[in-house]
């Protein structure tokens, strides 16, 4: 079994509880700027997008790391930084297409989502379903169901409109 974080930006309310609990779990402090997840907002336009590591299969961070310090934890499937090998060059930050590799200026090192060792706090606390922690085998049906729901919504509206017009 291998689980993964799934983000649904449409369900995100922008409350940033994920940032808060992430920083407490990892750094024992509330400091959203030291969290491994960030809710990026275009506040005045009403746009919200949580950004977190996708644990890519062919991960650019791991591939680009000159010290081979980023490797997958076989138990959780998370890509983790081995700080004894990390040389602090931040190449991983440059190559990550999602901007999901962070830098903690307090400990002076790169930081990334480690799925909290298999109990990711962001998903634990997010009740809206914007962040889910699901088995990879459920991934397809999750997306299919969401697609079907919006299609069904549309069909209901169309049917209602036709009925009303007719």
């Amino acid at each position: 079994m291998s689980k993964i974080l799934v983000i649904d930006p449409e369900k995100c309310t922008g409350c940033r509880l994920c940032e808060q609990v992430c920083s407490v779990k990892h750094e024992r402090v509330v400091n959203p700027y030291r969290a491994r997840i960030k809710v990026v907002k275009w506040e005045m336009e009403g746009k919200i997008l949580p950004v977190v590591c996708q644990q890519c299969e062919d991960a650019p961070c791991a591939a680009a790391c000159p010290g081979h310090a980023i490797a997958r934890n076989p138990e959780t499937g998370a890509l983790e930084v081995n700080y004894t090998l990390c040389i602090g060059c931040r190449t991983c930050m440059n190559v990550c297409p999602f901007g999901a590799m962070g830098f903690d200026w307090v400990e002076n090192r790169v930081i990334k989502c480690d799925l909290c060792g298999g109990d990711p706090q962001c998903a634990r606390f997010c009740e809206t379903g914007a962040i889910l922690y699901v088995d990879k085998s459920e991934l397809s049906s999750l997306k299919q169901k969401k697609g079907a729901e919006s299609l069904m919504d549309l069909m209901t509206k169309v049917t209602a409109a036709i009925t009303q017009a007719g």
């Binding site: 609990v21 402090v29 509330v30 400091n31």
Partner: peptide, 18 residues
């Protein structure tokens, strides 16, 4: 601001918050 707000008992505070 980027100054830490230290939590006295982080694990317990997480559980109780939940």
């Amino acid at each position: 601001g980027r100054m830490d707000i230290k939590i006295a008992f982080p694990e317990e505070a997480l559980d109780y918050n939940k």
